[in-house]
Amino acid sequence: MKTNFDSSQPIFQQIAEMIEDDILNGTYQEGDQIISMAQFASTFQINPATAVKGIGLLVGEGILYKKRGLGMYVAEGAKQTIMGKRRIRFYDEMVSKLLEEAEKLGITNEDVIEMIKERTGADRK
């Protein structure tokens, strides 16, 4: 979980992503309870309304759900939902950015593919 907020994005979205990251990396399993709004506020020194907004975003997407009087829990299938959503964003943001930068540097698409192959090959060794 990252603990720094950057200025490029509203904090509530960053909070939502932090929770998503924790679900993706297994810190939270499906069915687990996440920390309370007051704990969020105190731990990250953020306004409680911001935490509520971030959590609300995930409730709206069916990633978290509320048990009345108990708190917020990770929904069944949450991980799958997040992966699907992030996959789209991976394409929209990261792949496009990569190709944009490549174009600026005069690197062809073929070169980029070659670099990716080289990189994954190096990682496997």
Binding site: M37, A38, Q39, A41, S42, T43, Q45, I46, N47, P48
Partner: peptide, 14 residues
């Protein structure tokens, strides 16, 4: 200061 912020937001939440 950080301790104060933490306590302030937690108390404000409650």
């Amino acid at each position: 200061r950080e301790k104060f912020y933490s306590i302030l937001v937690e108390d404000y939440a409650n």
